[in-house]
Computed example of a mutant assay.
Amino acid sequence: MPSGFVGKNKCVPLQELVSRVADGASLAIGGSFLHRGPFAFVRELIRQGRTGLEIIKQSPGYDIDILCRAGAVRKVRAGIVAMEGNFGLAPWYRRAVERQEVVLEEHACASLTAGLRAAAYGIPFQPCAGLHGSDLPALNGWVSLPDPYSDRAPVYAIPAIEPDYAVLLASEIDRQGNVRIAGTPHWDRIMSRASRSVLVVAEKLVDTQIFQDNPESTVVPYFMVEAFSVVPGGAWPGSCWPSYPIDYPAVESYLAEGDEALAAHLAKAPEAATQEKAR
């Protein structure tokens, strides 16, 4: 980024950030399982009463589960879905699929990544190997293609997947929207390139000079980011390395049955007090 660049301040309150997502939108949600997911954004979708959402993620858990629990989801494209080893499967997600309340396009993590890559590269499909012997190609109508250069096994052509938004959680962001992530970015980078726009929840706002001094650490550049909110603890009850670990008691409390348990969980979230003042 040029040192003299002065751009638009893209920082908005969380409520305004989430209001950009319309009912029926498709969202690629960053992070993995209970780690560095934009969970404050997910909870605000519920508070604002979003419905008909399509959720795209290689390894969702809490995020897809709480959205299904709130009745906000119409379709899921996902690989493995779980609350991780401590808590097993995602119960409300499973019920929603079993009751056919949501449409499931089941993927392997590799096939979902291939679809996102196709969108990022601007091509209609991306070859993907390793699916032979699985029912996934038949279930999803994926076409196999012969190798045009040898007699090796054919590969499957995964159609491009272009979400309306990638919703990510950043460790640090500047006012122009440059994104830095501590540790692994999981699939956040390819999600940002595949989606039509990017919305970010950030743990910390930092000076642009930090990015200029170390530009190779930028995971998503400012010109790809539509807007962001600064929400410390935005991955709660999940972790955001190295700032905080998973809040296991909070996850256990969330899993309790009943509307009152869900309401209590939403009220306990770090962003809840700020959001209540803003309403």
Results as ranks from 00 to 15, higher is better:
F211Y: 08
D188A: 05
V201F: 01
V42K: 13
M191A: 14
V21R: 05
P270N: 02
I46K: 12
A78F: 02
L17P: 08
Q48S: 10
C109Q: 15
S192D: 01
E101D: 14
A263F: 08
S171Q: 04
A78H: 10
A269V: 09
S59Q: 07
P270M: 08
W187Q: 11
A194Q: 03
L112C: 05
L27K: 00
D65F: 11
S111D: 08
G4E: 08
I64S: 12
K10Q: 05
L136V: 09
V143C: 03
Y222R: 10
I158N: 06
P60G: 12
P2I: 10
R193Y: 07
R180Y: 09
R196L: 15
A250Y: 10
V198D: 04
R43H: 08
A108P: 02
S239W: 04
Q209V: 11
R180Q: 06
E271P: 00
G130L: 10
G141Y: 03
I173M: 05
G79A: 09
L131G: 07
I173C: 09
A119G: 00
I29S: 08
P154F: 14
F223K: 12
A278V: 01
C240G: 05
A166T: 06
F228Q: 00
C128N: 02
R50P: 03
T208L: 04
L139Q: 06
H186E: 06
A269R: 06
G258W: 09
N9F: 07
N178R: 02
L205H: 06
A70G: 15
V76W: 07
K75S: 07
E44Q: 15
M1F: 01
V206K: 13
E98N: 00
R117A: 11
R193V: 00
A261E: 10
L53Y: 14
K57N: 15
A153K: 13
V167Q: 00
A72H: 03
I210V: 13
A72R: 05
V220E: 00
L169D: 02
Q176H: 03
D207P: 00
R20H: 03
H107R: 06
L168G: 08
P38G: 13
S195F: 07
E106L: 01
L116K: 01
T208Q: 03
E172G: 02
V73A: 04
N9S: 02
D65H: 11
A138E: 12
R196H: 05
T218K: 06
Y165C: 04
